Amino acid sequence: MSVSAVKKGFLWTMLALLLSSGQAYAETKIPGLNFNIYEVDDPDAFVPALKIIALLTILGVAPAILLMMTSFTRIVVVLSFVRQALGTQTMPPNQVVLGLSLFLTFFTMGPVIDVIHERALTPYLEKAITQEQAVNETVAPLRKFMLREVKESDLQAFFNIAHLPKPNSMEDVPMRVLIPSFVVSELKTAFQIGFLIYIPFLVIDMVVSSVLMGMGMMMLPPTVVSLPFKLVLFVLVDGWGLIVDSLVRSFSLG
């Protein structure tokens, strides 16, 4: 068989394969997406589109909003302080810190989540309440949780900034004042806990530094020597268990 015959056979084979694949591709139905912009005479017909845009916008910022309205802020800041106090740099990694913070948030917010599921989500899915009622029933337990944890001094500060009159009761506090006040209060509490966490590790660093200076070992960084001692102390006292237990108990779970 000549070379030209082999080439012709190869070309015919490839052509047959292309034709068969093209036929199979033509028989396969591919879903399409159609998006049209057109004019309408009825203004009410434009309302559903606005609702969809508003819903997509809310979903984009909903995770950040929900995290700021829960116990996540205090937990993640305290756990970050623990890692810095130990001096382990990236141990545990950020993924572990954030993951543990999220699961501890789900645990501490359990009563609130149960109330939302019972009074808002389930009735709404069963079409027993409207969407507006479901939103109100969702915000109510979150608002109650924030009011328990927020400091009155922070509320007063934001009322003064906004030049708003002092409310007659805590139930009259608007959400635009309550949410930033709650976040600032959580940061204050987290930094107070972080300061207490730093004290024993700072003592170890000072003792190790004094011993090294007394021995004349000036060139040896104290953190290199103190790190094993801090890890041993942290493990012996069950540091993670104590910190998690203290964090959870610092919230009102009732």
Rank of each mutant, 00 (worst) to 15 (best):
V3T: 15
V3Y: 13
K7T: 12
F10D: 08
L11Q: 09
T13H: 03
T13F: 04
L17H: 08
L18E: 13
S20W: 03
E27K: 09
I30V: 13
V40T: 11
D44R: 14
V47H: 01
L55V: 02
L56P: 05
L56S: 10
T57S: 11
T57H: 11
I58P: 03
V61W: 14
V61T: 13
A62T: 11
A64Q: 15
I65T: 15
M68Q: 14
F72E: 00
R74F: 01
S80Y: 06
R83S: 08
A85R: 01
L86H: 00
M91I: 12
P93N: 10
L102A: 10
F106K: 02
P111R: 08
I113N: 08
V115Y: 07
E118M: 05
A120N: 10
T122G: 02
T122P: 03
Y124Q: 04
L125R: 11
E126I: 07
K127T: 04
Q131F: 11
E132S: 14
Q133I: 02
Q133D: 10
A134I: 05
V135L: 12
N136Y: 02
E137Q: 02
A140I: 01
A140R: 15
V150M: 08
K151S: 09
Q156M: 10
Q156N: 11
A157D: 15
F159E: 14
N160P: 00
A162Y: 15
A162I: 15
H163A: 11
P165N: 10
P167W: 03
M170E: 11
D172Y: 03
M175R: 06
V177C: 02
I179A: 12
P180I: 12
F182S: 07
E186N: 14
F195G: 14
L196D: 04
P200Q: 06
I204W: 02
V208N: 04
S209N: 14
L212R: 14
G214C: 00
M217Y: 09
V224N: 05
L227Y: 05
P228L: 02
V237S: 06
G241H: 09
G241I: 09
I243S: 14
D245L: 06
L247K: 03
L247N: 05
V248C: 00
L253K: 08
